[in-house]
Design a protein around this nucleic acid. Structure first.
Length: 592
RNA sequence: GGGCGUGUGGCCUAGUCUGGAUAGGGCAUCGGGUUCCUAACCCGAGGGUCGGGGGUUCGAAUCCCCCCACGCCCGCCA
């Protein structure tokens, strides 16, 4: 037993199938499961629209609804069946629902919401940004979505590994090594000018991603008009590919990555594994992929010796009907190396999920075409999200100078949170205030990115990202803290929580129980659909239900048995909201 | 030009996969609520051609077709 709504749904669907069958309308329980709607709130728990069945049977829908409701068998947590117009309405046995929901929450504790264990190993690869400089806000959507998806899949019962694919082989990371391989005072003037650190900032005082990343944009500009510099960078790429990369290359890459990961850690994103692209070249996997592609059905060789694939027939855009596998000098390209990486992932995992920005959509299809060409039938599942754009238009880009640094956003969020905490709480120590502010700021930013469907483009606006009110991370944290506070004052911070289901009778109480009961279904839904934002929507609804309860129903000042029962309800809310916050990667706060 | 995605009150958004009851929320605006468990909260009000047009259906924000607008991609970059 892991979902308090499951038995009642199953009962309804099973009996409905039987009764509709008796009316001459055969429909499987599975099909009916999909047709069973949530009834409008206040009307009932579930509703079934009879129009379709009625039409097929030749009975007026209203009559069919009346007939079905009249002698529908109760039980399984179903207390009452009514009809309204063409709808059959199913009402749960509320005391029984309260009992099964709260008991389940207390029995499972931190495990509440999780599904039955599964054995298929899943890999969620996300973020995988080049180690060339600090994260901007546009990039973190990938990490937030990927990290949350991984948390949800774990909750759904899968063994999950998160991976960061570190691209240390491309031109972009070579650019950083190239510029830092010479003393700063010998840098080309335009680079030195463009990369000048602000007053008082040095390598010792600044995070490595910010420090090493500073010249990135200027170098990128320089390479467009300086063939000699471009040639030197190209030479470096060849060195890396042949395994003779300067030690500095890996050192800088690791330093920059470390700085980047520190930023992600601030919003709860961590990785299980890192796969450095260069290792795939050095262990020969990329070479083997190139050899297999050379013998592939549609392999061709371009005039300058570049190996390519004639990809017509793969549904790629016309101009892109050729996939280039190696450069003229024989060095590999990113899609080719990514094939090697995917073959490796397939050997380690049953399911491979790639979180990709929409700008990688074509890459995804290229990758699939190349996998076909090497005779690999397995496919990654792509979780595609739209970009975060800048209000003036266009997506964030460090190179174009249109980007907001994640660290800057977080610093600002934490600063504002600090001011808010100070305003509200005079009793806390400076350390407590600082800690709360960090989690509130981080929670606001992470939730802001998470609350919107991945399919939707997001326009970045400071005021929205920094909102602590309404549908926000801090609202959830505040709700959790309120629940924690009541339990603390009652000295009831741990089980057991005895309760009497019949003592919980107000609309606010029963709605809160219903919300608590919806977590397992939400987890199952998201693990199936990858609609990670649904967890954010759920969390908000739960917190809202709790705040309404809090407002209208006294707990500590109530008489028994209401008092104990309400304390149990508060404890169940704290557990459920806490488990949900864990899924969202938003820190729980016992006080704020 | 082709491919993918998006379009829901002033702004942001859920619902779209699997069609079903008066399209839910948040921000902003206006009006209320704290001698009482944390007002980062709660209650109420106004505000909607669900981008436009056709179609399918008993029924369309949801499915199909056409069109419009916006974003991204269409490198021997990643």
């Amino acid at each position: 037993m892991w979902d308090p709504w499951l038995s009642i749904r199953q009962h309804i669907v099973r009996e409905l199938a039987l009764r509709l069958g008796a009316h001459g309308y055969p429909e499987s329980a599975d099909a009916l499961e999909r047709q069973l709607d949530d009834a409008p709130s206040g009307v009932a728990d579930f509703g079934y629209a009879t129009h379709r069945a009625a039409k097929s049977v030749g009975t007026p829908p209203e009559r069919l609804a009346t007939e079905l409701a009249a002698d529908f068998p109760l039980g399984g947590g179903l207390a009452r069946v009514t009809s309204e117009g063409a709808y059959v309405n199913f009402h749960a046995d509320t005391p029984r629902l309260i009992e099964s929901t709260l008991e389940l929450v207390f029995a499972r504790g931190p495990e509440y919401g999780r599904g039955p264990p599964r054995t298929e190993k899943v890999c969620v690869e996300h973020t995988s940004a080049n180690p060339t400089g600090p994260f901007h806000v546009g990039r973190v959507r990938n990490g937030v979505i990927g990290d949350t998806m991984a948390r949800i899949l774990r909750a759904a019962g899968y063994p999950v590994t998160t991976e960061y694919y570190v691209d240390d082989m491309g031109r972009q990371s070579a650019m950083i090594t190239w510029i830092w391989s010479m003393p700063v005072d010998q840098w080309p003037p335009e680079v030195r000018e463009g990369a000048r650190p602000p007053e008082g900032v040095s390598a010792a005082t600044e995070k490595a991603d910010h420090w090493y990343g500073r010249p990135y944009r200027s170098v990128s500009e320089l390479l467009k008009k300086d063939p000699l510099a471009a040639q030197q960078v190209g030479e470096l790429v060849r060195q890396v590919e042949s395994g003779n990369s300067p030690a500095r290359h890996r050192e800088i890459g690791e330093a920059v990555l470390k700085g980047m990961l520190a930023s992600l850690a601030r919003i709860g994103i961590r990785f299980d594994e890192f796969v450095w692209e260069s290792t795939l070249v050095q262990d020969g996997s990329v070479g083997r992929v190139i050899e297999r592609l050379r013998k592939a059905p549609h392999a061709t060789v371009e005039e300058n010796g570049a190996l390519a694939l004639d990809a017509r027939g793969y549904g790629l855009p016309k101009e892109n009907a050729t996939i280039v596998v190696t450069r003229g000098d024989g060095t590999s390209l990113y899609p080719t190396r990514d094939v090697a990486y995917h073959l490796q992932k397939f050997s380690r995992f049953a399911r491979v999920i790639d979180v990709l920005g929409q700008d990688h959509q074509l890459h995804a299809r290229t990758l699939v075409a190349m996998l076909t060409e090497v005779g690999e039938a397995r496919r990654p599942e792509f979780l595609i999200y739209q970009d975060i754009t800048v209000p003036e238009g266009g997506r964030m880009s460090t190179r174009k100078g249109k980007a907001v640094n994640l660290d800057d956003l977080l610093d600002e969020a934490v600063e504002r949170a600090h001011a808010e905490v100070l305003k509200r709480r005079e009793d806390l120590s400076e350390d407590q205030v600082t800690e709360i502010a960090q989690h509130v700021g981080a929670g606001a930013v992470r939730f802001h990115v998470l609350r919107i469907a991945p399919d939707k483009p997001v326009k970045f606006r400071w005021e929205e990202a920094l909102s602590f009110e309404g549908r926000s991370g801090p609202f959830l944290q505040y709700s959790y803290a309120r629940a924690a506070s009541i339990l603390r004052k009652a000295s009831r911070e741990a089980p057991p929580y005895p309760f009497e289901a019949t003592a919980l009778t107000t609309h606010e109480e029963t709605e809160l129980v219903r919300a608590i009961g919806r977590l397992p279904g939400t987890v199952a839904y998201v693990s199936r659909t990858s609609h990670v934002h649904t967890v954010a929507t759920y969390a908000f609804g739960l917190a809202e239900a709790f705040n309404r309860f809090y407002q209208s129903v006294p707990v500590l000042r109530a008489e028994e048995p209401a008092k104990s029962s309400r304390l149990a309800l508060v404890a169940a809310t704290r557990q459920t909201l806490g488990n949900t916050l864990d899924l969202l990667g938003v820190e729980r706060l016992e006080r704020m």
